[in-house]
């Protein structure tokens, strides 16, 4: 392993992770600086709807495609979402496995599974990009950050796919590409839409609490 690759796998990642953690901490402190709205009204709705149940339902909503009409009807988009995000998780895991647990990749089955997941996510990234460019509604709501973030992740998946076997016999460029992109990704994320997962627990918490208090969550359907 070259010094550059070693640096990319370790020092660069640690610095990038530290930077991300710092920015995220500042971000959360800033966010929590806004006052939380209260709700003085007495609870409404059936006993099956409470603030606590509302919050749990709201958090779990994303894993219940049947719960919302949008995900129920547009199930292909939902499936793409699942594949894409599992791919992200796998690629992030890979950025730790290669430097800290390379032995896990000696098992060919593990390599194959990771490549299928990450390869699938790459294909979804391409499909999503085509949709964002080709769909009139998507174009109207997209910002440069939306396009860039999607391209960034899709290219990152490509390098991750190549990096999974952790082989340097054909050169190190694919591993270098993966780790340099990972570092860039970690630094860029707090400033981009990709940081949505940081806010997800909060938006879902407050919506769930309000809707649970008001008898809407969990949603009952005929």
């Amino acid at each position: 392993m070259s010094e550059l690759l070693h640096f990319s796998e370790h020092t660069l990642q640690e610095v990038a992770l530290g930077f991300m953690a710092l920015v995220y901490t500042i971000r959360i402190i800033w966010f929590l600086g806004f006052k939380a709205g209260g709700d003085r009204q007495a609870e409404t709705g059936p006993p099956s709807t409470t603030p606590a149940k509302g919050v749990l339902y709201s958090w779990a909503n994303i894993a219940m495609p049947w719960a919302m009409e949008s995900t129920r009807r547009q199930y292909i988009l939902y499936a793409q979402f699942v594949v894409f995000h599992i791919g992200v998780t796998a690629a992030i895991a890979l950025s730790f496995i290669i430097p800290y647990g390379p032995g896990l990749l000696e098992n060919q089955a593990s390599v194959l599974i990771l490549q299928i997941i990450i390869g699938g996510a790459f294909l979804v990234g391409v499909v999503r990009f085509v949709r964002r460019v080709g769909n009139r509604y998507m174009r109207a709501i997209s910002s440069p950050d939306d396009y860039f973030s999607l391209v960034l992740l899709t290219v990152w998946f490509f390098f991750a796919f190549l990096a999974v076997p952790n082989q340097t016999s054909g050169g190190e460029w694919h591993l270098l590409g993966f780790f340099i992109m990972t570092a860039f990704f970690l630094v860029y994320v707090p400033f981009s839409k990709i940081s949505h997962y940081l806010y997800y627990p909060f938006t879902r918490y407050y919506l769930g609490k309000t809707m649970g208090h008001r008898g809407v969550y969990p949603v009952g359907r005929a």
Binding site: F31, L32, A36, S70, M138, H196, F202, T203, T210
Partner: peptide, 20 residues
């Protein structure tokens, strides 16, 4: 307030809301 800021920050422009 926090709820509103969360909603303003969290949109990822996925477009799933369009047809609702």
């Amino acid at each position: 307030n926090r709820q509103m800021v969360g909603s303003l920050l969290a949109c990822v422009h996925c477009g799933l809301c369009t047809e609702t």
